[in-house]
Design a protein around this nucleic acid. Structure first.
Lengths: 208, 208, 208, 208
DNA sequence: ATCTAAACGAGACGGTACGTCAGGTCTTGGT
DNA sequence: ACCAAGACCTGACGTACCGTCTCGTTTAGAT
């Protein structure tokens, strides 16, 4: 089993290389379908047909449909969300949340992909603990860093439960996305940031 | 692995009128399956087999699997969550949130059913706008009433955005349930309530 | 299949019955395809499509494609071949062989089915020892009986190796069918019968 | 279960000219597989893997799997079967038939290859009229020459239908090989030869 | 007491999608 | 020029589940 790679020169690759155009076509097909039909109709057959690829090629490169959805998602999320480096914590927080939401909503947003990924995660525990959690933890870590910076600058109490704040923020976003009872809009970022930064002590505590 | 017929004893046909025993057997079968296997394996065949019913009977009384899941859910949620009538807002809020969470987690909790319902809602927009939203709006209305009572008593500012608070609360609960990155526990109710009731104005606002 | 449970009276069949029309449609579809395309193109998909049935129905009733082919074959062969009861052995033999060949050749003959069955038997040893041999042994037994009658009447030596004669007869027929180097025609029955009944002792044996 | 690379030693690429070692490795791989697994498992992948060749190389040199099987067969059959030049017709016939059968049966025999070739021929009419018939006609011609010599020497009637005799002989051999209901053994050559040479006139005709 | 109509189990049926496999073709880089 | 490796599309395979459809049985409730 041990495949030494030490001094022995790495064997050169032989055989045809992966077709990057096909990879892009598949990811684009997934995106297109997610935006046009219900997730139940995003079948591997439909993806393959639209991408002009074969099911076999899909299975060669992705272990599951969820992996395809996630593949087109990860780059997106990292690109779209800007992690502001300077300014007051509140401003930086609003910028993070607003850009996060902006990347989800809209005709080109990742909303449908996120919904699909969440559906898969509920259907299959392995996808939940595997793909979904790894995706989510990256996003959580990004927000966490914004908040930690705030703690260092004294804009946020050191003893604040960051997990609670992070879950409140992403919880609200996911909830509105998944249930769709109220529109998800970047405008909510302000109110959300205020709430996250508000003093947890009861208002009464302010009175003398 | 041999699929048992559940705990149901042989039921007589009732003729003419709907057989309530069958209805209960089906709902129990759904609950049992939700707690023992992944939602993908909660097929109509499996439900019918375990309930000792036929698929035809299932289709006669429920339009979809999601409807079965929801059917066993609605009564549950209403029963388990107590809407406290008196006491300080913070206490009443904590009680509501803690009982909500307690009804979800645990070996007999509704967590798996909620996950399944959410999966269906993402797979099919009609279920989202139909079943899921009607279920969710009932829960939202219950929390809303707790908060409104707080507004009337002056414990909560009148201009507070209730939708935001409600979404923050349920958002966090759903998020932890669906992503499962952190355990969902009633203990979080305290911190969550504090955050919901905290003064959204920046701490600076307290200074004279 | 029958699962008796002691004294408890045998439960009557419940559930929808097998659709005989579908069975006939499938067998007819197999026959049609065998006569119109190469055996490689007689796929289950093609059969299902032509029969207006689903693949699942095919799998429900037949364990393999070979079984379908054989199913449509068995009745045919038994119907078409007449086993003559009276007359000189040579006449009866000719009649048997000619009717056998006549059932194989021609636009409605079983030739294509036999070819397909033989192909499957070579691809899969289990089909050879199972389906093919059981089919073949029935045909062999029929011819054997014609010859045994001849032995009883003294028209054929008692010590004749019947297996050899039977194999010679069916061997020639299968060989011409499978290789197709010479047309298979009922006319060959006369020469074939003469050869089978000829004195195996060297012509010299006739001299006193 | 691990598919070995056969017994072949590492071959150098030769470039430019066809690599005879590769050709032999492929033919040997086909032979090995034919003797060890069912014909359905003699896939091009399996052959390529075992021969240490690529599928492309297979396609470069042989138009089809049947051609590979036949390639390894033709030389074999010609080598193994001796066409006796002298002696009584009966002896020469027995020798021809016995050596033919001996080349088919046994652990190194061509039986599995013949079966595979016959399967392909039934699956695809082009292979039947192309490869199979050309192979068969060579074998038929060889037997025919034995019989013609017999006619010239007066040991066989001049008006005998040689095609009938040839088909009877090869028919029986193929039939026993393909159906496998009785063992194919060289011992049958004697009885077969006697039958082929027997007087087609009814035994009764000998009596005065 | 008989009749009727609905509920019910069993299970056949036409579909759709799955995940896998083999066949042929093409590309890449090495000999 | 030849070769091994392997990506790729095509299309068949066998399975699972879906939603619908007979069947024959059972029984509440109307006659």
């Amino acid at each position: 089993m041990a495949e030494t790679r030490g001094t022995h020169t790495r064997r050169a690759h032989t055989g045809r290389r992966r077709n990057e155009a096909t990879r892009q076509a598949v990811l684009q097909a997934v995106r297109d379908l997610l935006h046009s039909v219900s997730y139940r109709e995003v079948t591997l057959d439909a993806i393959a047909r639209r991408a002009g690829a074969s099911r076999q090629t899909l299975y060669r490169w992705w272990p599951s449909r969820a992996a395809m959805v996630l593949d087109g998602l990860t780059a997106d999320a990292a690109e779209r969300v800007t992690i502001p480096e300077s300014g007051p914590l509140r401003d930086r927080l609003i910028q993070f949340l607003a850009s996060t939401i902006a990347g989800i909503v809209g005709p080109q947003g990742t909303g449908p992909a996120l919904r699909g990924l969440m559906a898969e995660a509920q259907l299959d525990p392995e996808i939940r603990t595997g793909l979904l959690q790894s995706f989510v933890s990256a996003r959580r870590q990004a927000l966490r860093e914004v908040l930690i910076t705030g703690q260092r600058s004294g804009e946020l109490r050191a003893e604040t439960d960051l997990d609670l704040l992070v879950d409140l923020a992403f919880g609200l976003i996911w909830y509105r996305l998944l249930v769709d009872h109220l529109p998800l809009h970047s405008d909510v970022a302000g109110g959300l940031a205020d709430k996250l930064l508000s003093d947890s002590h009861h208002p009464a505590g302010c009175r003398p």
